[in-house]
């Protein structure tokens, strides 16, 4: 097949690869269903965790720091906060990754943005975790 669209781009296609080789190169993530599952599992976890956190805000709004620290130091609240932080930031970096892979088509920009999003997610998650643990102990 060799034709030109509006005379500006050569559309010659060389089908010298096997169907298996072609399909292996397809897909923005170049990987299987692990990403998909990670997004779903964290989504399911975030439904009750987010609702718990939203309801907690009513109790926390207006509290000063010592009162908040006392609330966060309860083992149940500490564990739920840690679960919320882990699920939120894992879900967030998986979701933002897909948005970048879908819409940023320049390889260098895409790679840079992906690294940046992953790095920011890890740093924010660690900042939240250390803070929750510091309040707890």
């Amino acid at each position: 097949m060799s034709e030109t669209t509006k005379g500006r781009r050569d559309l010659r296609v060389e089908m010298m690869r096997s169907q298996l080789g072609r399909v292996r190169g397809l897909g923005s993530a170049k990987s299987g269903v692990h990403h998909w599952w990670g997004e779903r599992v964290t989504a399911i976890a975030l439904v009750p965790l987010t609702l718990w956190f939203i309801l907690s805000i009513y109790r926390l709004a207006g509290l000063d720091q010592p009162a908040l620290a006392h609330w966060a130091a309860s083992p149940v609240h500490t564990v739920l906060l840690i679960c919320l932080v882990l699920a939120t930031f894992h879900h967030m970096q998986l979701g933002l990754q897909v948005v970048i892979e879908d819409y940023v088509h320049t390889e260098a920009t895409r790679f840079t943005l992906l690294l940046l999003v992953k790095a920011i997610s890890v740093v924010l998650a660690l900042a939240c975790l250390v803070s929750v643990l510091k309040l707890a102990f």
Binding site: Q65, L68, A69, A72, L81, V85, T88, F89, M92, G95, L96, V99, L124, A127, C128, V130, S131, V132, K134, L135
Partner: peptide, 19 residues
């Protein structure tokens, strides 16, 4: 999803400030 991602900055600031 992107908006809520930006919102995690406030969650982080809130927790770090509390600690």
């Amino acid at each position: 999803g992107i908006a809520v991602s930006v919102g995690t900055l406030l969650l982080t600031w809130w927790l770090v400030a509390a600690a």
